[in-house]
Design a protein around this nucleic acid. Structure first.
Ligand SMILES: [Mn+2]
Ligand SMILES: [Mn+2]
Ligand SMILES: [Zn+2]
Ligand SMILES: [Zn+2]
Lengths: 136, 136
DNA sequence: CATTTACCGCAACTCGATTGCAAAGATTAT
DNA sequence: ATAATCTTTGCAATCGAGTTGCGGTAAATG
C-alpha cells in the first residue's frame, strides 16, 4: 500500500500537516469516514481545516465521497490508479445495522444500458443491507 | 395511469386536501421533485404539511425517495404494483446539466453478487450524466 | 351532539455543511 | 536575508435542508 506522502506526490497535492494526518487516518481504516468521524478522531485539527482538506483531496482524486443516505457524506481513499472516471466506479455497501460504509472494489459494476442519448458521467451506487458482521 | 384517489385507496392512506394536491402534483410531472420544488409549486400549502405528507406517502409506499447527491432528497411516485422491495429497485438518472432526476423503470438492475454473508435489503442507485435533452 | 383522533399551519429548532476573516506558515521575488 | 505574495489554518458565524412542538381546525367515532 502507498504511504500518504507517495499518494500526495502522485496526485500533486502539497503536503501539509493537516493533510498528512487526515490522509494517514483515512488510510488506517477500512471503512468510509464522515467529517464528524474524522473530527472526533483528530481532536487537534480544526473541523473546517479537515473539511477543506477533504475538499482538496476530492478535487484531486485522492479520495472520493459517498452519499450513503445516512445524512453524512462519507469519504474513502481512492484505489491506486483511480481517476474517478466511470471505469473506476464501484458499489458501496451501507450496513443498516452498524452504520459502516464500505467500498466494494471487488464487485464488478455491470454495463448500464441507459436510454437513447443519455450519457454516463458518474454514479453513486449504494447497496444497503447487513454486513457480514451484522448478518448472523 | 391511476388517479390520486385510486392510489391512496390502494395504499390505504386517508385522502386529505394536502395529500390530494401533493400527489396530483407529483403525478403530473415526469421527474422526481424535492421538497423545495413542491413548496414552490404549491404556494397555498405549508412546507411542514408537505413534508409530513411526503413522509406519510413514503411510509405507505405511495412514493419513494431518491438521494441524488444534489443535496436535496427527491421524491417520485412508485410504479403500479411497487412495494419498495429489492425487486422493485431501479436506477435513477441525475442530469448534471439540468438537475433533473428520473426513475429509469425500464433499465433492468442486474443481480449484485455481494461479498460472502452480506445481505441485500435496499439500494440507492444513482447514475449521473447528461439526459437526452442536454446531450447534444 | 360530545369526545376522540388526525391533520394543518406557523414558528422555532437541529445539525451537517460551508464561509469570512485574521493569524500563521510557506513560497517567491527583491 | 528581507520583503512581498500566496497558501493554509483555526475560530466563529452563517446557511439551509430537514424536522419538530404546539395550538387550532377538521374529520371520525360513539
Ligand atoms: Mn468507494
Ligand atoms: Mn424511482
Ligand atoms: Zn454491519
Ligand atoms: Zn438534462
Amino acid at each position: 500500500m502507498q504511504t500518504e506522502e507517495e499518494i500526495l506526490k502522485i496526485k500533486k497535492v502539497k503536503n501539509t500537516a493537516a493533510r498528512t494526518v487526515v490522509l494517514r487516518h483515512l488510510l488506517s481504516l477500512e471503512k468510509a469516514q464522515s467529517l464528524k468521524d474524522i473530527v472526533n478522531a483528530l481532536p487537534y485539527t480544526d473541523r473546517s481545516s479537515i473539511f477543506r482538506t477533504l475538499k482538496t483531496f476530492e478535487e484531486n482524486k485522492v479520495i472520493h465521497s459517498i452519499e450513503d443516505g445516512s445524512g453524512m457524506t462519507k469519504y474513502a481513499v481512492c484505489a491506486e490508479g483511480c481517476n474517478c472516471d466511470p471505469k473506476d466506479l464501484h458499489y458501496h455497501f451501507y450496513c443498516t445495522n452498524c452504520d459502516k460504509t464500505f467500498c466494494l472494489f471487488d464487485v464488478p459494476i455491470p454495463n448500464i444500458q441507459l436510454p437513447k442519448n443519455f450519457k454516463l458521467q458518474q454514479a453513486n451506487m449504494v447497496v444497503k443491507g447487513l454486513c457480514d458482521n451484522c448478518n448472523r
